[in-house]
Design a protein around this nucleic acid. Structure first.
Lengths: 468, 468
DNA sequence: CAATTTGTGGCTACACATTTA
DNA sequence: TTAAATGTGTAGCCACAAATT
């Protein structure tokens, strides 16, 4: 029997003692999961401390620890030593972001890539199907890419500062696919990966699939703070780190060279595996003055560099390049064979042809121009703070106030024909008081439609000013 | 201190007590892993019982359990209640099978798909690039397939007995990719999946990646034995089952209708999730008299049906169809978005065009003809046992004797310019006394090359007869 | 800065199921 | 058939680390 009565000290969660079956820890975890998914326990709710709940249920407190752990690994709750256990921000729903053309909405949510440039790609298809070696693209050969395709890939990445050889590059089916391969190849369930407080939501979901725990690290305008990373690394066992130095998703933060060096030194010291998603390299290298090199160059033996072509060249062709050190090579190749077998050599050939013919550069400059225009339009509605963020980003990070109910805000805006995502979707760990919206600029059918969307959004967020 | 001295009772493995650091269980697991990977402990070696080792190391025996468990999940060892713990057959190497054109070998190892038919595919490419809607294939839209592509897919599968609607089919990047998606979507680390004793080696590796334990189930000439499945299910908690009813890889066993019914009833009773890999449907439906329907029809709500087009139509275009019940739909779609984002709409369009134009059927009949010829050639060298196995299989399962050292046999044959895989690569669990070779018939550049290969192989396996 | 709260991780105890002899 | 051997799974105990007060 419990020693104390808890009737006077209300606990936020009082599971029915009679509903508990053996094994207790599984049964309790499933009760908690149900109550969270059914909405009885809202995001951010503090759960009873382990010892208190144990006393209430007349169990040993480590049995509660076990139950809480199950829910934590599922991403339903998170625990902070010293302060307690809380219901996670995105506990009750998936935050995977995918395209959605079913409703007739102005899409400021999913980040596409100014699909207007795809007309240029069309021509190249004709050229590729007339190649004499077309038939050689249709078999199982060269699962990581045909040599001349890899050469083109290396050529493409050279302008971003990447230097590698044929043995240390592989062609995979898009950047997201590369992330899945990296997680499968290099991490195990229960491993921890450091990320920015706000990070790419599909990476969060991917981590959930592989049961990898994300450890949010504080940052400033220059990206993740090295001393915060150092602190976490010295406290708990962290295995990897995920960064998008050229332009973080969703915050648009660029990491300058000095910060890259500092971070690299912490990463080196603690032997973390760095996953560098450089999907925005084409918007940054040679354009932004601070940009010197990818972090891969600083840590070649403990880094996977991922360069997707969906944002820069063509989204429908699912092609990305992975570059990796020799120490990681074998594992990554195995994971590629097991998850993809190979990537369509035809798709890779079209990308190759686009690169070699110079059309890829043409597309990139068109996309840059479109990004410039879209950002100009954006700044008409929401003036940019000059000191923060990438000027050509395909999305913007808009601070908002007084809209704490994420689901409500997104739903409300849908009623106004706008699809947009709230910052809580991008939270890698606990919730924060600051709230934002990520506004995709590259997904509308035209810049005019973008204008319409931003106008509606502004009116919604700030109705008084608009009326005046 | 240990109570007994073990100097007189030699244990197969005596870890150095002094090398143990805290935490003991991790330290011990890593010692064991090292000794297995370095070859000090050979496949099949019986490890000391948990209690005995605990006594020797002066630890509690459940600490040993933990250490053993870590290695078991990694696939290094396997435990059998009552009889002990043993080093796994494929502990010290990856058994992923991928194409390898680097050496100049006759490939009887990797199963390709008579790539001679790819010339037919070439023509269709020209037709597709001239489509008016080509540009619509180059964006992020329709991540699970464009409606008319799904219609073609359903059309294609209808002849195999599959009936489903647009909402319950998705296009993914090949059958192996579909398996990865199914495992990611529907299972968790530590879950168990029942398989045949010998099963598709890349599925074994995929299970390792996702930390899913395979439970080998005995079978006979008609496939897995329902009573054996029932026995395992009632003993331990099994979550899923993997079957290739049309033609098991590597054994070429076909499951007849009566056995499908029996298995389905056990699967239904224990609510297993069935992963049905029907990559050989095109060789079976309408050809083999026993074939009536896929198991998906018997268990539509708890089955993922996977129909790859790499073996039947074209291997270089990475396209497979997944069909699933409503209960599994949401999870599978999420996994597709997270692992692939989407599959190239262009590749899917080529497959669609091949299906709609009837060229796919033309390819299939050519492949069947080639398979027939290849099997005829095979039977000249190794007479077929009429009662077992698929007559048109792209590979054969050859019983051998006296070649227990897998690595040695494969290496020896490589020296004779033959690439071939030993049955141990396909073992889902403990080792067996019977030994086989899987002989791929669909991967040589010509049927003549196949003849040469089989001749060398026969000579190697049976030198005396050859001399006579 | 010390005491307290709260979570983490590792080792032990033990009941139980299956297999083998 | 029974006893012994052997692995499985759950719960409890405890030292400790971090954060809060």
């Amino acid at each position: 029997m419990p020693v104390n009565s808890f009737e006077h000290y209300p606990m936020s969660w009082k599971p029915d003692k009679k509903a508990l079956k053996r094994p207790f820890y599984k049964s309790l975890a499933s009760l908690l999961e149900q109550d969270i998914l059914n909405g009885f326990l809202a995001s951010g709710t503090k759960l009873p401390p382990q010892r208190e709940l144990a006393d209430f249920l007349d169990l040993n407190f480590t049995t509660i620890t076990r139950a809480y752990k199950i829910c934590e690994v599922k991403g339903l709750i998170y625990a902070v030593t010293g302060s307690g256990t809380f219901v996670a921000p995105n506990a009750s729903r998936s935050i995977t972001i995918s395209i959605d053309k079913t409703a007739n909405l102005i899409d400021l949510g999913f980040v596409a890539s100014f699909e207007q440039t795809n007309a240029i790609v069309k021509d190249v298809f004709h050229k590729v199907v007339d190649k004499s070696y077309l038939e050689q693209l249709l078999n199982y050969n060269d699962p990581t890419g045909i040599p001349h395709q890899k050469t083109a890939a290396l050529n493409w990445m050279e302008s971003f500062g990447i230097h590698a050889d044929q043995e240390h590059v592989a062609i995979v089916s898009g950047a997201q696919n590369a992330l899945a391969i990296a997680l499968a190849a290099l991490f195990e369930p229960g491993n921890r990966i450091a990320t920015d407080l706000y990070t790419y939501s599909n990476f969060i979901e991917l981590a959930k699939i592989f049961h990898i725990q994300l450890v949010p690290i504080l940052g400033d305008q220059f990206g993740m703070l090295p001393e915060e990373l150092e602190k976490q690394c010295s406290q708990i066992n962290i295995h990897g780190i995920f960064l998008m130095p050229s332009c973080s998703n969703p915050t648009t933060v660029m990491i300058p060279e000095f910060r890259k060096q500092e971070l690299a030194s912490v990463i080196r010291k603690h032997r973390l595996i760095l996953i560098e998603d450089d999907i925005h390299a084409f918007l940054t290298a040679g354009i932004i003055s601070d940009y010197e090199q990818p972090m891969f160059n600083l840590l070649p033996e403990q880094c996977v560099y991922i360069c997707g072509t969906s944002k820069s060249i063509c989204s429908g062709l699912r092609v990305a390049f992975m570059v990796f050190g020799d120490a990681l090579r074998e594992k990554i190749l195995q994971a590629i064979f097991n998850i993809n077998v190979k990537t369509s050599s035809f798709d890779a050939e079209v990308i190759t042809e686009l690169i070699l013919s110079g059309k890829a550069h043409e597309i990139v400059s068109q996309k840059k121009q479109l990004a410039k225009s879209a950002n100009d339009i954006y700044s008409e509605y929401f003036p940019l703070n000059e000191t923060v963020g990438h000027p050509l980003s395909f999305y913007r990070w808009l601070p908002i106030q007084g809209h704490n109910d994420v689901l409500q805000l997104e739903t409300d805006l849908k009623r106004h024909s706008i699809r947009v995502f709230h910052s809580d979707r991008f939270l890698s760990g606990q919730t924060t008081p600051d709230k934002y919206l990520r506004i995709a600029l590259a997904s509308t059918n035209s810049l005019d439609e973008l204008k319409t969307g931003l106008k509606i959004l502004k009116q919604y967020l700030n109705p008084k000013k608009q009326k005046a």
